[in-house]
Every structure is written in C-alpha cells, then in structure tokens.
Nucleic acid binder design. Structure first.
Length: 564
RNA sequence: CGGGGUGUGGCGCAGUCGGCUAGCGCGCAGCGUUUGGGACGCUGAGGUCGGAGGUUCAAGUCCUCUCACCCCGACCA
C-alpha cells in the first residue's frame, strides 16, 4: 500500500480529553474515528490489525475443537423475557421494534440464542460435547463509554459456548479454552494475568478474567505476594482475623454526645475500630437494606449484590434512611425490625462490640452476635484492600489496575434448564446440558496491545498483528536514484509476499520518521542517497534503537528470514 | 442516573464586561526554494460560532429551552 493512497491520516494534535494512551495513539495514527459515544469507525490500518487478531483467535478456537457459526444480532425480546435476563441487563439492552410493533433487542451476548439452537440440535449424549463460537458484533448501551476502545457500546466479540453432559466435561472444556486463550494472547503479543472473577450477569459459579495490567485499566486486581493468587477486587477475599473480646458481657448503653462516624465513636470510647460494628444502608430494588460490618472494614457492593440476588443496588440516601426510622449516627441492628439485615461474617470474629443504640447520641457496649441481633443473611461482603492478609497463605495483598481482555464462565445449567435444552444419557435419563461461556472483546484487545506496546513516539505493533510488516521510507533528493530504487523495492517485496507500507510522499525525513514511529510498523527500511552509495539500505526494527545497513540484493531474503 | 466540564473551518485552540469584514496554529490547494528526525516564502480555498426560541439598534458573546460530547462514580469483553 502506498501512503499517498492510504485512507486515513496521521494527526498532529488530538483532543485534550483523550487521556488514555491507546485512545491517544489510535486517534493520532488516524486508525479510529468516533461516530457517537462509544461507537467507532475503524479505518483501514485498524481494520487490518483487527482482522489479524480475529485470524489468531479463530485459529486457536479451531485448534481447541471449536466450530464457528453465526447467530443474529437482532433477537426477539421474548427470548430474553424467558430467561429473565431482560431485567438483569435492564437498560444496557438496545431495544427496537419491527413494522408490526414486535419487540426486539440488539444482542449484547448470545447465551439465549445458542441455548435455543442447541436445544434443537442436541438430543443425546452422543451429540456432546460441543464447542461453538462466533466472531460478531455486540451491542450494549453502557452507562458510560470511556477511554476510546476500552469501553464502547458496539464492539466485536468472539463468544464461545461449551456444552457438556456433566461437571467433569465442563471442566475439561473450560481448561481447554483457558489454554487456547493463553495461547492467543501470547500470539498477539499480550502479557495477561489470569484472575478469579465475579460472574455478573452471565451467572454461574466459577469464572476467570484475563487482565492486562496497566494504569488506565478499569478493574482492580488483588495479588497475593506470597502464593501469587490473583483475583478481581469484586471477588477477592481477605483474612479478617479474630479480634477477641472475651466472654460476652451484659449489654449497656453509653452516652456518646456529638459523635457519629466510626472514627469518632472509636476515639471517644478509646477502642480500636475493629471492636466496633458499622451500619451501612443500601437500596436493593427500591427496598432499604441494613448492612452490618465490622468498623474497620468496607463493604464490597458486588458481593453484597450477589448475596441479595437483587437487580439494582445503590447506597441509600440520608432521607431514605431517616424515613425508615433509623437514627443517623447511632444506627444499630439491635432491636431493628421490618428491615432486611445483612451482616458481614466479620461480626462473628469477636465479642462485645460497640454498636449504635438507635437513640440519638447513644451507643451500646458489649453487642454480640447472635445474642443481640439477627441477620437474614450472614456472609462475606468485605472489600479487600491493599495490605490485607491472604486467607490462603497469610501473605500480603497488593493491588494493580487492569483491562479485562477476556472472561470465561462455568455457567452450569441455568439456561439449559430454563430453556429446556436436555439430552438423554446412556441409561435413557434426561438431563440439562452443562454450559460454559467464553468471551473476548476484539477491539479492546487491540487497544490493550497498544497500552502494553508503545513508547513516546507511538505504537510498537507486535509482528503478528501489525497492519503491515514493512515500512519503506525513501528520503528523496533531486537528481538521486532513490525514487527508482524505492519503487523497485516496493514491487519486489510485495511480490515476495511481504505486507508493505510504502511512504511515497514527498515529505521531509522528519515527517516520515515520525509517522513511521507513530504507526508502529515492525520493520522500517530507509533508502537514501547515502545508503545507495553503498548499494544498501538501512533496516531498523521499531522495537529497537539500532539500525543496520543491508545490501540491496540481500534485503528480500533477509526480511523473509525475519518475518516468515 | 448523580457530580463536574466542553461545543467556534478537516484537526487543535483563542475570542464570552454585547459593537465594525470572526481570529491563531496545524492541515489542505497552487508556485518556488528545501530534504537523515515534524523545513521555508508567497498566494489561496474553507466557518449561517451545536440547535431552537427570546432580549437588543446590534448576539459567538446575555436569557430560556434543547441536543451532543468529555471527565469522575454505580456496569462489563
């Protein structure tokens, strides 16, 4: 491809609000263009890279035994009502109607459709296991698109679904795809971490995410320095320790004038924060929930939401709390009624806690669970923090930020039971098919590669997914034969099967070098009067500082050995 | 949805105590000089200032409504 003909121009300046590296670089390189919030056009260079990534994904899915198919983007709303996920997805579903006013959604994912498909094509254990996948556009009306391609509303996703007869089968499929994912990230030049994750709207019990560590990532990863276990903060569990307190003592009131927050209460009564109980209020599907947790800990809202099995969860406002008859600053689970109480399991870590008294400016000493209060739910809802202790090995947690470039789920029988996807086993018994789901965001993966492979000059594409392999950079001068040799080089290399971007513009050297660096093509060939004096040209890798002179007649074989 | 902010040629921005033909840099077109890390000169094209309504002799600038986009939080590949 000649640069004078390529659609898309490099930009000298980009909007100040693009603050993520990948967003900046992809804009600057003229590879993407925003059409609306979270909706992008991909120009030829970006498209070539996306195509290469898809090729690698496809190859690994096929090697793992996957069969590619294609499902529709337009899906009947009824399908989503059947699974109940129209409510779970809520406003992230893009809605539309046909001319008969039948309601449809633009597919945000395809569990329902594929389960339907499998139901009609699988009757026997002989039809299983199955690994089915597609690479296709997904639509999610995200509340807040951000950071260029990292979080968008329309995107290409590779989604694979596994179907097995039982748990062991699911585990085998899961491990197989997990391995395929590791292979494909590596082939794309990405370093990823495998972390334990929350299952979210897909459901199921076990799930892992593939994370690319970078400051601009949206997710927080918790890493144990000792045992190297990793988890998304949404999922991570830390050891809370026993805080003691001795034998339960009789409960007593204390006056606490002018103190409200946990810090103030603890200071006033001269006890450590972990000897207090804190009340936090949430609205779960418009109902007030009373959450109790040890004073030194924070609530993990994802865990809380999971424990409540609610659709919507948010902090309650002060007004809502007061309206429910709660005394602000002295709220207590003791003697509360008519409100659902959820307690973190840390309330069992000690005895004789300080808690509110549900009376203004009054607290209680020696509050004990379950003697003094009950909870409908008691489970782990604590948010892990840096410096916390790992429950596995007593190591220390550290945090990093990451971009989720893949997510895999052991889903189980949720969809197959709901939608009636059953098979007959050897003995003639009917069972629901056991399912797994595996997703990769292709555009996000590309952006993550840029996040991980760049310098202050621009992108450094890994050879495997670079839009072109070689950049020919002729430095023209009147009366020289640079032009003639450059043209011949372009023809020869292209004929030799190499993917070549030819900078045939009459630009100054500085402009060309800067654009070459920005576009990040792995190999740059500079040809100038200077190199021609030695019948050679200059070969430089984008990823390295040094360059070398290579005789003209050797360059084709040389590149071949480097690239193929 | 809550909080903060921005809309002015293709791109990045200035102009907002109302006042004259709306500016600057980049890019773009033509001519000439340049050519190893974003060259220079001359000439030129290109904007109903996000949209609607209003106030005024006069609106990019003030008022009302509205739309879009960005950033921070609740969601996810």
């Amino acid at each position: 491809m000649r640069l004078t003909q390529l659609f898309g121009k490099t930009q000298r300046e980009i909007p100040a609000e693009a603050d993520t590296i990948s967003h900046q670089l992809l804009l600057k390189a003229g590879m993407i263009r925003q059409v609306a919030a979270g909706i992008y056009s991909y120009l030829p260079l970006a498209w070539r890279t996306l195509t290469r990534i898809e090729r690698i994904i496809r190859d690994e899915m096929d090697k793992a035994g996957g069969q590619e198919l294609r499902m529709p983007s337009i899906q009947p709303l009824e399908l989503w009502q059947e699974s109940g996920r129209d409510l779970i997805l809520g406003k992230t579903l893009f809605n539309l109607s046909d001319r008969r006013e039948h309601k449809f959604v633009l597919g945000p994912t395809h569990e329902e459709v594929i389960t339907e498909l499998v139901k009609h094509n699988v009757q026997s254990y002989r039809d299983l296991p199955l690994l089915l996948y597609q690479i296709q556009t997904k639509f999610r009306d995200e509340p807040r698109p951000r950071a260029g391609l990292i979080r968008v509303r329309e995107f290409t996703m590779k989604d694979l679904y596994s179907f097995d007869t039982d748990e062991e089968g699911l585990n085998r499929s899961y491990d197989r795809i997990l391995q395929a994912y590791q292979n494909l990230y590596e082939r794309c030049g990405l370093t990823t971490l495998l972390v334990e994750a929350d299952s979210g709207a897909i459901g199921g019990k076990e799930s892992h995410e593939f994370m690319v560590v970078t400051e601009s990532g949206e997710d927080e990863i918790v890493l144990c320095e000792d045992c190297q276990s990793m988890a998304n903060v949404e999922k991570a569990k830390s050891a809370k320790g026993e805080v003691g307190g001795g034998e339960p003592l009789p409960r007593e009131e204390v006056a606490t004038p002018g103190v409200a927050s946990i810090e103030e209460v603890a200071d006033f009564l001269k006890v450590p924060r972990n000897r207090t109980l804190k009340a936090v209020f949430y609205m779960a599907d418009s109902k007030l929930v009373f959450v109790v947790i040890r004073g030194d800990l924070e609530v993990n809202e994802v865990k809380l939401k999971n424990s409540l099995k609610c659709l919507e969860l948010r902090m309650a406002t002060q007004e809502e709390v007061i309206e429910a008859g709660i005394v602000p600053g002295a709220a207590s689970p003791v003697g509360i009624s008519g409100i659902k109480v959820v307690a973190d399991d840390s309330v069992t870590s000690g005895t004789n806690f300080i808690a509110g008294a549900n009376k203004p400016a009054t607290h209680l000493r020696n509050v004990n669970y379950p003697r003094d209060f009950k909870a409908e739910i008691i489970t782990d809802i604590t948010k892990a923090r840096a410096g916390d202790v790992c429950p596995q090995c007593e190591g220390t947690f550290t945090f990093s930020r990451g971009i989720e470039v893949g997510h895999i789920f052991k889903v189980g029988t949720f969809y197959s039971e709901k939608q009636g996807a059953f098979f007959i086993d050897r003995s003639g018994q009917s069972h629901p098919v056991v399912m797994g789901c595996y997703g990769i965001g292709v555009g996000r993966l590309m952006a993550a590669v840029v996040e991980q492979n760049h310098d202050d000059k621009g992108i450094i594409w890994p050879l495997s997914i670079a839009p072109y392999q070689v950049y020919i950079c002729p430095l023209y001068r009147e009366g020289s034969r640079v032009s003639e040799f450059a043209e011949k080089l372009y023809t020869d290399l292209t004929a030799a099967g190499l993917e070549v971007l030819f900078d045939d513009r009459a630009e100054s050297p500085g402009v060309k070098f800067n654009d070459a660096d920005l576009l990040g093509i792995p190999f740059r060939l500079t040809i100038s009067p200077r190199t021609l004096e030695n019948d050679s040209l200059e070969l430089k890798r984008r990823s390295e500082k040094e360059h070398e002179l290579v005789p003209l007649e050797e360059i084709t074989t040389r590149l071949h050995s480097l690239i193929l």
